[in-house]
Write a protein that binds this DNA or RNA. Structure first.
Lengths: 196, 196
DNA sequence: CTATTTCTGTTCTTATCGGTATAGAAAGCG
DNA sequence: CGCTTTCTATACCGATAAGAACAGAAATAG
């Protein structure tokens, strides 16, 4: 793929990083194209040429967010035991949603939990994205049961939904201003209910 | 207070109930005045005369929502022990956020977790509203410690934040389509971590 | 019955939204 | 060097947002 014509003057990932910040802080519906182009440092036609429309830009931003900012999910899933998976997941989640210098909370939650009829697709996209993450944990816990690491009586899907509920709740608290210390204590407690 | 002039042709609470539904489903920013007036069955000037502007209507709706739809909080707080308070709170929360015929989830969460700069006040209003609820539980648990009902080592504020995190997380799951049965099992597990 | 008060519906205003047309600028290709 | 291709910036477009103006309608007060 050889570059033809005038080369793009901005970096796609840099631009997406800026978009991530804005969508994270203001949500999909609360973000205007002027907000986006100002933060990304590009003009409107450049955005449309590079990403498509607002919705496509949002999806690209969320995809990059899951790769860059939620890489800790992969690290958690790679832990040797279900218990270690859960601990690593919850604690690194707390760190991610209370990261100084980044918006508090989680783009996947703040991006849009509800929306107008015309923006319903965006809400469903985020729901599906979180469900996919939950599925990965369910799969990991199925493996743990098969390996004898988790008791046969445990329901992998239920454990995954439990963790997903915890991290969602933590993100809501973080967005409302809860501190890392507070949420760490909440995480400690939540893990009491996870099989040891 | 004697009624003067032409009497209002609609019921304030009926109108607010309709507004609650719309804000609940679509969030503050996703709701237009046309959405509101259509659902409430009144015209635009009637809405403005009765409630003020869109923001004031939202706040009135949230206030009514907390009185009508979150009355279970009072019932929970009135339970005799901290453990009973927690159980009652979490289980009735699950029922409320998966109530058939009503929107899934919780207005206080779906109303707006994030927003544009101009709608920031609404987000903060909701945050404050949830914080106030959390405070009531913290106070209740302080009483429980004083009464010897809770161990002296327990932190009432932390327990309250834990429950608030759980119910917030449950609301997010419900909004994304989780069933009552699923969330009941998550609630069962979450309560394992609450002092018995 | 008249005057006053307050509600109601239609219409209008202003700002801003997402998205686009158009023209110019910067690169590679021959 | 021109020609093609692709980017950039200014300006523009129709649609829609929140909110206000205005006149008519329905009640009470005298």
């Amino acid at each position: 793929m050889v570059a033809r014509g005038r080369p793009r003057e901005f970096d796609l990932d840099d631009a997406l990083d800026a978009a991530i910040e804005v969508f994270w802080r203001q949500g999909y519906e609360g973000t205007t194209l002027d907000d986006l182009t100002a933060a990304m440092g590009i003009s409107r036609p450049s955005l449309y040429a590079a990403f498509g429309d607002k919705e496509a830009t949002f999806k690209r931003a969320v995809e990059r967010y899951t790769v860059v900012d939620m890489d800790y999910v992969n690290a958690a899933l790679a832990q040797p035991t279900a218990r270690a998976v859960a601990e690593r997941f919850v604690y690194s989640n707390v760190r991610a949603i209370t990261n100084p210098g980044r918006p508090a909370g989680c783009l996947s939650i703040q991006g849009g939990l509800s929306g107008s009829k015309t923006d319903r697709r965006v809400v469903e996209f985020l729901n599906a994205s979180r469900a996919a993450s939950e599925d990965r944990f369910a799969q990991r816990f199925r493996r743990a049961v098969a390996e004898g690491d988790l008791a046969a009586g445990e329901d992998p899907a239920e454990l995954a939904k439990y963790l997903n509920t915890i991290t969602s709740g933590l993100a809501v608290q973080a967005a409302a201003g809860a501190t890392r210390a507070q949420l760490t204590r909440v995480a400690d407690r939540a893990l009491l209910a996870f099989p040891a």
